[in-house]
Design a protein around this nucleic acid. Structure first.
Lengths: 345, 345
DNA sequence: GAAGTTTTGATGTACGTAAATCAAAAATTT
DNA sequence: AAATTTTTGATTTACGTACATCAAAACTTC
């Protein structure tokens, strides 16, 4: 049977109250006594029953999630996962609120963070934009003891407690490696379509992609990146222009959203099968394009894992508990049409 | 505030005892009364506080894990994760025992299952061998109400409750797709090295691999599979022979263990860079070979996820609770040298 | 060694549920 | 209508921890 507070009180030869004082480091315990108790804890291998402790404390965790608004299917997937987490709230002792702000708008995001601050939650999860006012807003939250986790796109210079997202440089490198190998000896340049260089994840993916092509496939020309604002209509226009200007285009790496536009442009130009397309995020559209062969590889981050991980980390950090980094690592899923899970998304 | 049993008693106009009878379907409640209570539960949106319930019940989950013995690095990784779970036992109310049996020995495995049966655990997790005596042993466990989860390699015809492992057909198909694309127009046949056709996961990977090559890369010759018994020494001999017999060998798919032998043979023959090698499971050796370029792609299943998922499922099923299949899906990790996590394994 | 301070003990209540007991009420049968 | 059975209520204890209160003991300080 696992030891309880009573057992360690008996083992240490002190009262329950003293054990409690040590465990919850309340004042009024001589250091000799404290040592006795701590030795008893060690020898018996006592571990606090977190469930019972939470029950007794009646603790709950008010959390705020801040996501970009708009049509971006991946972000809407994230939102769906946040709502699923809300539905689990009673069981997880969380009280989750959701704020949506215009995409790529640092000012609006900073305002949303200030609003979140006013509500005094235990923690905030935010899809960050890499801008000074955002960094400052995060700092103010942290100064008030509010835990901040960045989601999907990080804010490395800031005081954020944790980043729940993939290693975007590695993602870009992976795309570069696959693109290089898939193209093999085939001629022609490679294009890159991003959402915006304002967000760090897109910058990092580009950096990784270009690095690998430069290192390992230096014969391959990479065209200057174009920014589609994660907007399908704009992306379609841009890709159509690229296809027209470069009849020998060998590949496209779409590292942001708006893949409906990418797929439409490729198919309309009749180049779906000849251009190697690598894109990000599994959505109903990108899934269909992968199965049809228009997209060759999809890199994905599991939205459900990201949200659940963020919540675990927020709760742990709010309690001052350590986080097992290895367990919270968000993996880069690589989907070919052969390993597509047949369920959701 | 979330509703408690008291609230639903008040709402339904019955006593606490009656609510308890309904919640834990104890006998002695008229169906009219039961309906009243259930309506109250629905209108208040009551959700049982599982933590408090477990506390009150003092429930614990005796579980048994059965793994193959031997040098197989992946299996030893699984074992390490089981031991890590044992260390977490006090916090998770589990009591985990570990049995190791000789690999590829159906008889020994059936005996181990019988031994597990004798110990009357709440659940058993087992790396299955696809043999009638194993299926029968699993059936006997199930007939006694013991939950059975297969791990890594499934036993589809059996009564097992759940499979915690990857879709091995998809894994084989993925390997086939990548092999086909990586080789591009290059000449030469492809070899397949398995551990044993006795275990289902190896058979399924082979099936998927051959299917994709047949469907999409039908010009490519696939040599007959050779079985290395997951033994590095044997694998090295077999691969060395393959390399000698086929000077134009373009690729090798190693779908089992013993990759030390694969790497050694390739490097000794000076063919490490010219033969495209795709292998399974991230271990210290395979990781090094991926980084050095001897192995081109590693397919991996996360041992930690598998063990943790198996435990969650065993506990849930032991309580008769539903399992969220999507959440328990084990993903196929595809590692290139660019997206290798820098931590463990 | 008396007064003051700090440390410790004893005890009780609470959290939300499980499970048991016994009495009371309601329904059923005769 | 009495006897019997079934259903319901009231109450208690327990799980392991948190937290508060008050009294008793152990230390200081002068």
């Amino acid at each position: 049977m696992r030891p309880t507070v009573h057992d360690i009180a008996a083992e240490a030869g002190v009262s329950l109250a003293t054990v409690d004082r040590v465990l919850n480091n309340r004042p009024g315990v001589r250091s000799v006594t404290r040592d006795k108790v701590e030795r008893a804890i060690a020898t018996l291998g006592y571990v606090r029953d977190v469930a019972a402790a939470n029950l007794a404390k009646g603790r709950s965790y008010p959390l705020i999630f801040i996501l970009p608004a708009g049509e971006n299917a991946f972000m809407r997937g994230l939102e769906a996962e946040v709502r699923a987490a809300m539905a689990r709230s009673p069981a997880e002792r969380t009280e989750i609120a959701l704020l949506c702000v215009p995409a790529f708008d640092a000012r609006a995001l900073a305002d949303a963070l200030a609003e979140a601050h006013r509500r005094r939650p235990a923690g905030v999860a935010v899809v960050a934009i890499d801008a000074p006012e955002v960094t400052r807003a995060v700092k103010r939250l942290r100064d008030d003891g509010i835990v901040v986790v960045t989601l999907v796109s990080d804010l490395p210079g800031s005081a954020r407690d944790h980043f729940a997202g993939v290693d975007n440089i590695a993602a870009g490198r992976t795309a570069g490696n696959l693109m290089g190998r898939f193209l093999g000896g085939r001629e022609g340049p490679v294009a890159v379509v991003a959402g915006s260089m304002l967000v760090r994840d897109h910058r990092e993916r580009l950096e990784g992609f270009e690095a690998v092509l430069g290192e390992c496939f230096s014969a391959r020309q990479v065209l200057p990146v174009v920014e589609g604002q994660d907007d399908a209509t704009l992306v379609e226009k841009l890709v159509a222009a690229l296809l027209e200007r470069h009849p020998d285009l060998a590949g496209i790496y779409s590292l942001g959203a708006g893949n409906r536009g990418l797929v439409a442009a490729l198919e309309r130009a009749g180049r779906a099968k000849t251009v190697c397309a690598i894109a990000h995020e599994l959505t109903p559209h990108s899934r269909a394009a992968l199965l049809s062969g228009t997209i060759d590889v999809l890199l994905n981050q599991d939205a459900g894992h990201e949200i659940r991980s963020a919540i675990r980390v927020l709760k742990a950090k709010a309690d001052g508990l350590p986080v097992i980094e290895a367990q919270e690592r968000i993996r880069i899923d690589i989907f070919l049409k052969d390993n597509l899970p047949n369920g959701q998304a």
